[in-house]
Amino acid sequence: MKKVSMLLLCTLLFITGCVQDSNDEEVLQNDDTKEETSIVPSYQLSDENYRMILPYKTSAARGVIGNQIANRVDIDEMEEGLRRLSKEVFDPEELYFQEGQYLTSDMIYTWIDELNPKVKEGADEETYQENPRYLSHILEQNYMRHNEDQSVGLAGISLGIAMKSVYRFQTQVGGPYFYKDIPKDEMLSQANEIAHSILQEIRQMEGLGDVPIMIGIYQEEEQASPVPGNFVAKANVPGGSTSIDDWESVNEENILFPSDEGREKYYDDHEIVSSFGNEIAKFFPNYVGLMGEGFYIDEELQKLTIEIPIEFYGKAEVLGFTQYAYGLVQDMFPNYYDLEVNIKTSQQMESLIYRNAGDESPTVHVYD
């Protein structure tokens, strides 16, 4: 019981350390509707996260991303990645996050159809191959400013433009699927034209003519990929501008471990993950393997996430496995990046081992 209590105590200390003190709860008014009162919570999880305005407003295009992007890991990475890129433009210490309120579902579906190549129903495979649908989705995020008169106004917009790396299509309903790989340079060329068209449309919308806009180009992975794609380019458009003058490359990668790509690009990290799995396999007969995902910026590992699926036959086995994995994490993994180890069965998460970059010791949580 003492060991379990220590695990829970470590978790509580971790959660407490993540919550940052801030000013008292603020009551604000929306610029557009002075009768609508908004509240900014008095706590934020960390200095790097945006505070959010309450009551929480869902996107005007809620649900579209799930219909347009087939891979769940791409959906999560696109949303989180766009917020990450936005921090370089819209300061999280000064601005608040809100889901996109201007681009509606109908607008996004219409733009996707208009900005993709047209193919007549009943066309043959060659026609589809020559006219792939490049654009999957347009994601909007709003960044809000607290004005001196206690109102909240729009300070900036971030747009994520999701582009396919593989085009999957059928020439007839119920027929076989065909695939076309889309080279990165071809995708970027199309994305540039699409982004300019979207910018022109947005500048004509009421209230958005002078708002700064950050645009990120997201390249999806193929539909069955266990790891997501990544942002590959970004551009900042000043308020009032109707053109995109320069694109800046974004050097981000999500790498699967173990894999041939991981071994070739990041050999040392690949070997650590593989050795970690080998050590677990020596002592736990129910272990069948693990999956690691490394997130890199400019070829430097920022976060390593490992999922270990295993079947347990009692809570004592969960505790024993978690304690053993904890020791391996402490001994084997450097602490210059964030590390997360999720131990799970087919039914649920069993335990979590987490260490922030720079921390000496991991934090452990065993789920009830």
Score class of each variant (00 low, 15 high):
residue 293 E to M: 15
residue 34 K to V: 14
residue 272 I to M: 09
residue 118 K to N: 12
residue 309 P to M: 10
residue 124 D to F: 07
residue 353 I to T: 02
residue 192 N to D: 15
residue 325 A to K: 04
residue 332 M to T: 09
residue 13 L to R: 10
residue 131 N to D: 05
residue 347 Q to T: 15
residue 278 N to P: 08
residue 168 R to A: 13
residue 361 S to C: 08
residue 359 D to L: 05
residue 165 S to P: 00
residue 1 M to G: 12
residue 354 Y to M: 06
residue 215 I to P: 00
residue 70 A to R: 10
residue 170 Q to M: 11
residue 285 P to G: 07
residue 75 I to W: 04
residue 351 S to A: 15
residue 147 N to W: 04
residue 107 M to H: 11
residue 142 N to E: 15
residue 285 P to R: 06
residue 3 K to G: 11
residue 357 A to T: 00
residue 136 S to V: 02
residue 136 S to W: 07
residue 49 N to A: 15
residue 47 D to S: 08
residue 296 Y to P: 00
residue 36 E to M: 11
residue 268 D to E: 15
residue 341 V to P: 03
residue 362 P to H: 05
residue 56 Y to Q: 10
residue 156 G to I: 11
residue 37 T to P: 05
residue 343 I to D: 03
residue 225 S to T: 11
residue 48 E to G: 04
residue 46 S to V: 04
residue 9 L to D: 12
residue 277 G to Y: 03
residue 238 P to I: 02
residue 77 E to S: 14
residue 250 V to D: 05
residue 270 H to I: 05
residue 101 Q to L: 12
residue 10 C to E: 14
residue 36 E to W: 06
residue 131 N to W: 07
residue 115 L to T: 04
residue 306 I to T: 03
residue 342 N to M: 13
residue 341 V to L: 07
residue 64 V to P: 01
residue 194 I to W: 00
residue 172 Q to T: 12
residue 76 D to G: 13
residue 273 V to A: 01
residue 224 A to C: 11
residue 212 P to D: 09
residue 349 M to P: 08
residue 127 T to Q: 11
residue 316 A to W: 07
residue 52 M to C: 13
residue 69 I to V: 15
residue 314 G to W: 04
residue 174 G to F: 09
residue 313 Y to T: 02
residue 201 E to S: 13
residue 17 G to K: 08
residue 218 Y to F: 13
residue 339 L to I: 09
residue 260 D to C: 10
residue 337 Y to N: 08
residue 353 I to M: 03
residue 16 T to K: 12
residue 15 I to D: 09
residue 281 A to K: 12
residue 101 Q to F: 10
residue 162 A to H: 04
residue 317 E to P: 00
residue 277 G to Q: 08
residue 99 E to L: 06
residue 365 H to T: 11
residue 171 T to D: 00
residue 68 Q to T: 06
residue 118 K to R: 12
residue 156 G to Q: 10
residue 231 F to M: 01
residue 4 V to R: 15
residue 51 R to Q: 15
residue 94 E to Y: 10
residue 332 M to D: 07
residue 203 R to G: 11
residue 211 V to Y: 06
residue 13 L to H: 10
